[in-house]
């Protein structure tokens, strides 16, 4: 498994975080990391720690906000929520991403046909 894990593309982690928060509502850092791991079915090589750099980046841009709260098992944690601006940004990025991936798919399959 180890070698075949995907390296994250620049900027994709930010989008995944926003998408997760949009779908799941308020979550703490560990919850976000867990969720991304589950959804990617462990295909992505992610040091969970790196998520915090993404979180602070998104926060500074005003796309997510954070608040200290208490978790189900009574542990203090910082909960993140996506903002309105974040949603707009997420839509935009999702559209860009889909466009890019369809273009990639077309280009790659054309390459395969030619072979």
């Amino acid at each position: 498994m180890g070698d075949s894990k995907l390296d994250l593309l620049q900027g994709t982690l930010d989008l995944m975080v926003m998408q997760t928060l949009d779908a799941m509502g308020p979550l703490h850092g560990y919850g976000i990391a867990r969720r991304i791991e589950q959804l990617s079915e462990n295909e992505i090589l992610l040091n969970q720690g790196t998520i915090y750099a993404a979180l602070v980046r998104l926060q500074q841009r005003g796309w997510i906000s954070a608040e200290w709260g208490v978790s189900d098992n009574n542990r203090r944690a910082k909960f993140y929520v996506i903002t309105k601006a974040g949603k707009r940004q997420m839509m935009q990025e999702r559209a860009d991403w889909q466009r890019l991936s369809s273009v990639m798919a077309r280009v790659l399959s054309a390459g395969a046909d030619a072979k």
Binding site: N47, Q48, G49, T50, Y52, A53, A54, V56, R57, Q60
Partner: peptide, 17 residues
């Protein structure tokens, strides 16, 4: 192990913020 290097993550956090 899953978390990775705490120091590196902190550094990345500092750089980002």
């Amino acid at each position: 192990v899953k978390f990775g290097s705490v120091e590196a993550s902190k550094d990345a956090h500092r750089d980002a913020r």
